[in-house]
Design a protein around this nucleic acid. Sequence first.
DNA 1: ACAATAAAAGATATTTTTGTCTTTTATTCC
DNA 2: GGAATAAAAGACAAAAATATCTTTTATTGT
Lengths: 164, 164
Amino acid sequence: MSFIPPAFTFVVNSFTNDYMAIFSKTCEYAMRAVFYVAQKSHEGQKVGIKEIAEQINSPEAFLAKILQKLSRERLIQSVKGPNGGFYFDAVSLNRPLADIVSAVDGNEIFTGCGLGLTYCSESNPCPLHEEFKKIRNQITHMLNNTTIGKFNLGLIKGKFTLNK
Amino acid sequence: MSFIPPAFTFVVNSFTNDYMAIFSKTCEYAMRAVFYVAQKSHEGQKVGIKEIAEQINSPEAFLAKILQKLSRERLIQSVKGPNGGFYFDAVSLNRPLADIVSAVDGNEIFTGCGLGLTYCSESNPCPLHEEFKKIRNQITHMLNNTTIGKFNLGLIKGKFTLNK
DNA sequence: ACAATAAAAGATATTTTTGTCTTTTATTCC
DNA sequence: GGAATAAAAGACAAAAATATCTTTTATTGT
Ligand code: FES
Ligand code: FES
């Protein structure tokens, strides 16, 4: 009887975070999904999780979890059963994208310190504070001024992409 | 013999990413450390990992790994042995903070799509593209225009904080 | 009432990031 | 040259984020 050693394991400690984006994957999927569903809602349709996941190129089961959360927080509407699916009512279509982001990623991006200090404050600022504050405010502004339904027409006209 | 059940495990799937900042923890520690060492270098001193970790309030062993990486990439200088430690030479003090960020977090933050599309492009833009591009450019600008030594005087004067 | 459908919920698995501990290597001082 | 020092490297561990699979619940159409 012979011992078969595990194949080369080399867990190289490459030690570069290999994909550090502004938003988490969860949040990226959420935003793409929301725009997709909004577009369909504009056309009066509900959409199933399978179609959404396909169209925005995200893992279906994972996206389901994300939309469940948004649904619990009443940020998106859903109905079960045949002919069911996800959609946005008129009120929800007018919500700012910021609501989605904070539901999923929390509020750190709106208020947190760029260098990771516990609190960002004027009285005890980190070196990047002044510059970082501007950027953070722009992000906040963008997310507050972008309603969920803002890109419906552009999406229908094919001006934007939500996958790849 | 009695069976002792594991204590309540409830791994609540709270499903909010509980701390989504712009930069990774690794990158935050790196930036804080770099500013601290730069200040000391300005005063002609080398600093040991223990002091750095204490002063910027970061886990020592973890920070050591980060500085090792920066050292391998010649972004920071170091000497072993008694009276050794980390420091920046004149050339390094003039490097942009962007070099630190990209060494640690990669280039996604400078070039990536806000919605997580594989490529950000003008010809195939996501809905946030125009607005997001501006923000990304501001981040890039900030990190390129902030040299590692830029805040030395402010730090020495106690204008800025790097911990808590 | 029943079968079919689709989301919600629950449980579990994988991967990445963050963090720690031990051993090795280089440098300085005596 | 030897002891002491401090970073570098290597191996390992814990926590968080990402991802998948199974079971349950609500709704619809027949
Ligand atoms: S204190 Fe760091 S961004 Fe305000
Ligand atoms: S395509 Fe999304 S930011 Fe450019």
